[in-house]
Design a protein around this nucleic acid. Structure first.
Lengths: 206, 206
DNA sequence: GTCTATAACGAGATAGAC
DNA sequence: GTCTATCTCGTTATAGAC
């Protein structure tokens, strides 16, 4: 990739703005960065940013829309693979683990914290992201149960919500410790305990 | 309680400031409220607030310190009870459920999202809060396992981290949906699946 | 301990030249 | 499409009277 810089020189300006703003949003939150921050990283003026994204609400909506679309494509890619259901769940957890690199939080988890301060269009996108995650997981879980390779208590919908919420939560906490290994340990332990798919290790000590 | 108002007229001014600021912090985040917001709710001037808490960092540190102390006292109260370990875990989840009323997020979960923008003293308090939660849970889990009433995979430390992280995560997501029932369902499902303590319902479909 | 007043700065946003 | 310049407002914080 010749000529590429940290700000992705080969891309359109709008895309480069989104790339920088995305990093700031996932690191500092929607209320934790300004147009001035983006401008200084890209070495352009604030006015130029307002040409591409007139208001911060416009920018925020574009950011969460792009993020959600990219995430759904990644889910579709996992879906298309020929792995077994447990491997799909591991791949799902790995999506979050990748985001956690560079001390980034899941964008929608971050926005969930700031939910009460968000413009309405952003709120709707955040909830849609969680809904779509739950639907995807529900399908994987249900198929795994029908196929006899996954076993879990309760409904697939409840298990799916638990997985989404636990991913967001352990990401949130592990990021504060700057410890991606903590995330991997907790996420792996959740999947082991929830759906099995491995030789059932006898609980120790009893 | 005669003479009490929503702003707790009977308390000292510093306490009333903390009460209002606490609600704002847990609802909107540290970067989502200002001294002007507190002043308008209490009907005092911003200057009066700065007398009690010179800087916002001072206020933030006082808030997280008070919150953590109160939470640890609640944990000690559960510890002192003669309930069985599973009941203690349910009581633990109920602490979070109570916070979620009024659309509030756990203060330290909220601050974990904003971690990168926090002054160092606040950061340390947030991590200490999580550490103390894990230590408390670890003890409950270990005693339950030794006593034969709890069974879970892996180490007590890993299970404790999973519980803390999942509580924070499901709180974060459920609050966006304004749906405390969602929290209760997911938190209950986690404890059922993780530690049992109930008749082992056979997984369906396999 | 609380007030008025204001300083000092940064945020989001716009006008108009180039 | 990007710039300079500017505007308005909100935010944190301080000085000094009461």
């Amino acid at each position: 990739m010749p000529g590429r810089t940290a700000q992705n020189e080969g891309a359109t300006t709008a895309t480069r703005i989104l790339d920088v703003a995305e990093g700031l949003l996932q690191t500092r939150g929607y209320n934790g960065f300004s147009y001035a921050d983006i401008a200084s990283e890209l070495d352009v003026t604030k006015a130029a940013l307002h040409y591409h994204f007139p208001t911060k609400a416009d920018l925020g909506e574009a950011l969460v829309t792009r993020y959600a679309e990219r995430f759904m494509k990644a889910l579709a890619a996992i879906e298309a693979g020929d792995d077994d259901p447990r491997a799909k769940l591991d791949a799902y957890a790995d999506l979050y683990a990748q985001v956690l690199q560079g001390r980034r939080m899941c964008m929608c988890g971050m926005l969930a914290a700031e939910y009460q301060t968000l413009p309405e269009p952003m709120r709707a996108r955040v909830l849609a992201f969680f809904d779509e995650n739950v639907v995807w997981l529900e399908r994987v879980l249900e198929r795994g149960r029908v196929g006899g390779v996954l076993a879990f208590r309760g409904s697939a919908a409840e298990a799916a919500m638990l997985i989404v919420d636990a991913m967001e939560g352990t990401m949130l906490v592990s990021r504060s410790y700057a410890d991606p290994a903590r995330f991997r340990s907790v996420a792996g332990g959740l999947l082991d305990g929830l759906v099995g798919g491995r030789p059932d290790a006898a609980p120790t000590g009893s």
